[in-house]
Design a protein around this nucleic acid. Structure first.
Length: 554
RNA sequence: GGGUCCGUGGCCUAGUUUGGAUAAGGCACCGUCCUUCUAAGUCGGUGAUCGUGGGUUCGAAUCCCACCGGGCCCGCCA
């Protein structure tokens, strides 16, 4: 099976045989809609002194000879190459026939560990943190689809000041009451208010932290159990949007032990001392403290230990972190790669914060929209929309559709935005289900499914077939799926898949509205149903990568 | 102040890594199409000094410099 890059490669070889000065960068997949493969001749023209007409006449005969090329058009300094329609769709259909999937030839034995979410278990997960989970889960799915052996991991902070405050807040204000999430959260918020008004957290939390760090096992366990209660509710929230994390690793496990010992042993010759505290000098002139003067470890040391731990079972580590961790990530990378001779590949995905029109999100101050709230309100909204549109459906069915639309919409609206961008969350946007949205994508699949149920799959005719414009566009877009899947996997960008899905659905909608099945002759029906089949398969595949739940009817 | 990321029609987003054809979608607004396979859809229209100013180039949203605006970071917190 030849994929688009294979054809591209053959065109490159052919062009370079007569025009070695041209670079791969000037022979590319045409994404601007003129043709299939475009050759830009400006740079080569300048290098060789030959004009466009001379280059075109030199290159054209060679390209024309390639068996998969239909025709060529040269104009304005561009040589546009059009592929035969059959080579765009036959490989997809053959792959589906043979393996039930397209593409079927991606595989990589590397083990990848995607760490995401890892939010402090001090309260319900809010929409800002959910961005981490949605990006992380999508990246894991994309890499897994690409062929890597992927596991996901959540690093649970049960050893810091925040969780100690959670524990202490409950003890102070709610002792004897039910130790549930809402009481824990209320205690957490109250103790932070208290510390602000009384001035100084050291007075209130200091003694508890001291006990914790002096290795008071009973306290450590008690803090961990409080964190576990909140963590359980976070897991439940995540599962509502289809996110399940493979492993949970507790930070308290790295307070002591061999992983932490390895860090300090490995860094021994680089460690510097300041009043008994241990630190490293970073290239940017800053100090990275690993150990306090009282001998207890600091977060960077434990995070380094955690990375060594992760590396035991992975060849490639990916951390999804908020942009506030950029400097931390840079420091961790430097220490691991330069000082500890780390062999694994390490990548960070940083994402911008989510804020509200009313300002930034804060769990402590209670200025948050939780993921649960978002799911509930979105589901209520989609339910009323479906109930209005589909008066024929049973209540159970309405509920299923509403939930799928809601969850898909939430995930898509976050996954489609490049992680670098800051986002301002607005209900008006979250509750809009038209245009570039998940329902737009889902709706196309439902339509295609209706066609499939009414007319079947058809079979592609042998030989070269003339396709009308919208049939060809759909065939080409479907065929290009592996190209975008590769791009998304290499660049760790779920938004690439989202953009692809939108372009795929636009191609399908054009096809759907101009290429009828009903009333057409058998040959036309057969090829359109084949295209419909290929579309259904590819959209199903791609949509699952970003957590969109496609429905057979909606 | 230093570092870093972002700035594209009224609003949201793609395109920037690798400079090239009319800056591509969506929301909102105006108009079109349901007795033909699902109108959460289709078609058309209004609307862009690509933050600003320089520079490099045959050619700049894209590269370089300066500036402006915003986010984030600059703890023996995590």
């Amino acid at each position: 099976m030849l994929l688009f890059p294979d054809y591209l490669g053959k065109v490159r070889v052919a062009v370079k045989s007569v025009l070695p000065q041209i670079t791969d960068n000037d022979i590319i997949v045409d994404e601007s809609g003129f043709s299939d493969i475009v050759i830009r001749t400006f740079a080569a023209s300048k290098k060789t002194g030959a004009d466009f007409a001379a280059i075109a006449s030199q290159v054209q005969p060679l390209i024309s000879k390639l068996e998969f090329v239909d025709r060529i058009e040269a104009r304005n300094g561009y040589i546009n190459v059009f592929l035969k329609s059959s080579v765009l769709i036959v490989p997809v259909l053959e792959s589906l026939e043979r393996t039930g999937t397209y593409p079927d030839n991606f595989q990589d034995p590397e083990r990848v560990c995607v760490e995401h979410t890892s939010t402090n278990p001090t309260g319900p997960i809010h929409i800002g943190r959910a961005r981490n989970s949605i990006i992380g889960d999508s990246v894991a799915r994309i890499l897994s689809r690409y062929g890597y052996r992927v596991t996901t991991q959540y690093y649970v902070n049960d050893a810091g000041k925040q969780v100690i405050a959670l524990h202490e807040g409950f003890r102070r204000y709610f002792e004897g009451k039910d130790r549930n999430v809402s009481n824990l959260l209320a205690g957490y918020q109250k103790i932070y208010q208290e510390m602000e008004s009384l001035g100084g957290e050291s007075k209130i939390l200091g003694p508890v932290i001291k006990r914790y760090e002096s290795n008071d096992e009973e306290l450590i366990e008690s803090v961990k159990s409080a964190a576990a209660i909140v963590l359980k509710s976070i897991k439940e929230s995540l599962e509502r949007v289809g996110i399940r994390i493979d492993d949970f690793v507790w930070e308290s496990g790295f307070l002591h032990g061999t992983d932490l010992d390895h860090v300090f042993e490995g860094l021994e010759e680089h460690l510097k001392d300041e009043n008994g505290a241990k630190y490293l000098d970073l290239p940017n002139g800053r100090k990275l403290f690993l150990q306090r003067s009282d001998g207890t470890s600091l977060y960077p040391a434990r995070d380094l230990a955690y990375h060594l731990f992760k590396a035991l079972n992975a060849d490639w580590l990916i951390d999804v972190l908020g942009e506030d961790h950029k400097d931390h990530g840079t420091a961790i990378r430097y220490v691991l790669m330069t000082l500890l001779d780390f062999k694994q590949r390490l990548d960070f995905i940083f994402y911008g914060f989510v804020s509200l029109d009313s300002g930034k999100l804060s769990t402590r101050k209670g200025n948050i929209i939780t993921l649960d709230e978002l799911v509930e309100r979105t589901t209520a909204e989609t339910h009323s929309i479906v109930a209005e549109k589909r008066k024929d459906l049973e209540p159970e069915r309405l509920k299923t559709i509403a939930e799928a639309v809601a969850v898909s919409s939430i995930r898509f609206s976050i996954a489609k935005v490049n992680a670098d961008k800051h986002m301002i969350f607005r209900w008006s946007e979250a509750l809009n289900f038209e245009g570039d949205s998940a329902p737009f994508i889902m709706y196309a699949y439902s339509r295609a499914t209706t066609l499939f149920k009414d007319y079947g799959t058809g079979s592609w005719p042998a030989g070269e077939v003339d396709l009308v414009q919208h049939e060809r566009k759909l065939a080409r877009t479907v065929f290009l799926y592996p190209y975008y899947l590769t791009d998304a996997a290499k660049s760790l960008r779920p938004d690439v898949i989202c953009s692809y899905l939108l372009s795929l659905v636009k191609a399908y909608n054009d096809f759907y509205s101009t290429c009828r099945i009903k009333g057409e002759n058998q040959e036309v029906q057969a090829r359109r149903l084949s295209l419909n089949r290929a579309f259904r398969s590819v959209i199903f595949d791609a949509a699952s990568l970003v957590g969109i739940r496609l429905l057979e009817e909606m």
